[in-house]
């Protein structure tokens, strides 16, 4: 079976012009990921786990390597795909769940959650109903649904964020410590949702501070290790 993702020799370094330095993040990352597989990224803090996720999502531009992503229309290298192609895939197939919600002023929690469905062409009432269902599932109190999350606590914002990120099933889901700052109820709702998505064939790559939270879901892991001699190239 064709994998969803084939990563070959992926590397990332940051060029910091004001310091005249390059910062090495990781290199030589290679792995395959199939539909319904859950891959855990392991390693100590600062080793580049989140950086790898962001590079796969193209918030960071890869320095070398390939990220073959298989679509119905053939494979595309996410490392060098045009920005508009990446934007298209993010709308339809590739999701990213971060720890932080980028709340917008004066947009209600339920509207934030419903937005991915609206963008996918689902009618406003239907999207709203689904959004409310997920807010309830993650334990956001009913009287907060119409409120603006800008004023919510970190934990409540995170629930809104998860509901939004997971409402529309994707083919590939990148999870950057989604359980951080969640209470027990929301955490088990999240694990249930991830299990459903996995069963439905969603491929996932995750970074978890406490991998125990998702122990039952993990198929494989990759250990990221710090490079012995940090590259320090003057430019």
């Amino acid at each position: 079976m064709t994998p969803v993702l084939e990563v070959e020799g992926l590397a990332k370094q940051f060029q910091m012009h004001h310091l005249g330095q390059r910062l090495h993040a990781f290199d030589g990352i290679s792995f395959d990921l199939h539909a319904g597989e859950f891959l855990l990224l392991r390693g100590p803090n600062g080793v580049g786990k989140s950086t790898l996720l962001r590079t796969l999502y193209r918030s960071y531009l890869p320095s070398a390597g390939r990220i073959w992503y298989h679509t119905a229309e053939g494979r595309i290298d996410l490392a060098t795909a045009a920005d508009v192609d990446i934007a298209l895939l993010r709308r339809r197939e590739i999701g990213f769940v971060t720890q932080f919600l980028i709340a917008r002023p004066r947009v209600a929690a339920e509207d934030i959650v419903a937005e991915p469905l609206r963008r996918a062409g689902i009618s406003a009432p239907e999207a709203l109903e689904e959004a409310r269902r997920w807010l309830a599932e993650f334990g956001v109190k009913r009287d907060l649904w119409r409120a603006y999350p800008t004023t919510f606590s970190g934990g409540e914002q995170q629930k809104v964020n998860l509901a939004r990120a997971l409402i529309l099933p994707q083919r590939l889901l990148l999870l950057d410590e989604p359980t951080a700052s969640l209470d027990a109820g929301a955490r088990s709702a999240l694990v249930r949702r991830l299990a459903d998505l996995k069963a439905a064939g969603v491929a996932m790559i995750g970074v978890f501070h406490h991998p125990g939270d998702v122990a039952g879901l993990i198929d494989r892991d990759i250990e990221l290790t710090a490079k012995e001699v940090p590259e320090d190239v003057a430019v």
Partner: peptide, 17 residues
């Protein structure tokens, strides 16, 4: 995209038709 030493050059759109 301006090609720099640390990033790869991007392709023409493939999925966006």
């Amino acid at each position: 995209m301006i090609a720099t030493e640390t990033a790869l050059a991007l392709q023409a759109p493939q999925l966006m038709t």
